[in-house]
């Protein structure tokens, strides 16, 4: 999987905020309108200006995504190509994925009567056809590059090491929530750019897994305990009845 798994590397030092990625993304996904200020049902990627810098936001395509783990019908899956894809034909519209996403990426088509969840699909069809994502193709400065996940990670490390003093020594997305398929490198600390500090460096679904792991214990121990209590109360009743009968017998004799 690792060799085939694709990713995006976003180098904040190179982004000039030209919006070409947003425009290409909207055109490719047949979404109307101009580039938008924040992620929405009609904008899978946006440029958020942060002081002098520009931060491009999109789905992080986590290695072990919360959204996929919480979906009761498995409408969201992490594909071998790296993309986290949403299948609207399975969706029931519970919107659990929207809250579960630590990066608050999935959005909802609130203005529709049959609304679907929307988010970046890492141009899955293009990638399967051997092409790169629309945003990477459109980027004029090389701020966004597309490639194999392992290669991009090495590239990110290389840039940090080869330009001492330029980059913050951190690849956002390498370890966060167990790793993602979108990496950011920056010359400004990430917290100053509005990046959230993820609650953990292990995949978030491990939190639910711990709770769900107790099901067999609850069922077996709880079940036997209840059955045992039932047997006990029945037995006690039988004994009490037998004693009464015995008493009657004695009194009669």
């Amino acid at each position: 999987m690792s060799k085939q798994s694709k990713a995006l590397l976003i180098d904040i030092t190179k982004c000039i905020g030209c919006q070409q990625c947003s425009v290409a993304c909207k055109a490719g996904h047949k979404q109307p309108g101009d580039p938008e200020p924040t992620l929405s049902a009609t904008a899978f990627t946006v440029i958020e200006p942060r002081g002098e810098k520009f931060v491009r936001r999109l789905c992080m395509h986590c290695e072990d995504p919360s959204c996929a783990s919480v979906c009761p019908v498995g409408a969201i899956v992490k594909t071998a190509q790296g993309a986290v894809r949403y299948d609207g034909s399975k969706c029931i519209g519970c919107r659990y994925c929207m809250i579960a996403c630590p990066f608050s990426v999935p959005k909802y088509e609130w203005s529709k009567l049959a609304p679907y969840v929307t988010k970046c699909d890492m141009c899955a069809e293009r990638v399967l056809a051997g092409k790169q994502t629309l945003c990477a193709e459109a980027c004029p400065t090389g701020a966004t590059t597309f490639g194999d996940r392992e290669d991009l990670l090495m590239e990110a490390h290389k840039r940090i090491v080869e330009n001492p003093g330029t980059y913050v020594p951190r690849i956002y997305g390498e370890k966060e929530v167990g790793g993602t398929s979108v990496f950011y490198i920056s010359d400004v600390p990430f917290e100053q750019l509005g990046f959230i500090e993820p609650p953990m460096n292990q995949p978030m679904p491990t939190l639910s897994a711990a709770a769900l792991g107790e099901v067999p214990t609850v069922v077996t121990i709880g079940g036997s305990l209840l059955a045992g209590l039932y047997w006990f109360t029945q037995r006690r009743r039988e004994v009490a009845l037998a004693q009464v009968a015995e008493q009657d017998e004695k009194e009669r004799n």
Binding site: V73, G93, A209
Partner: peptide
């Protein structure tokens, strides 16, 4: 539900990692 006519999906489409599924 956003798509209430799909309410029956969890019966046939399983995701046992999901607390909501349980």
């Amino acid at each position: 539900l956003g798509l209430p006519w799909n309410f029956w999906h969890p019966i046939v489409m399983w995701n046992r990692k999901s607390v909501l599924f349980e």
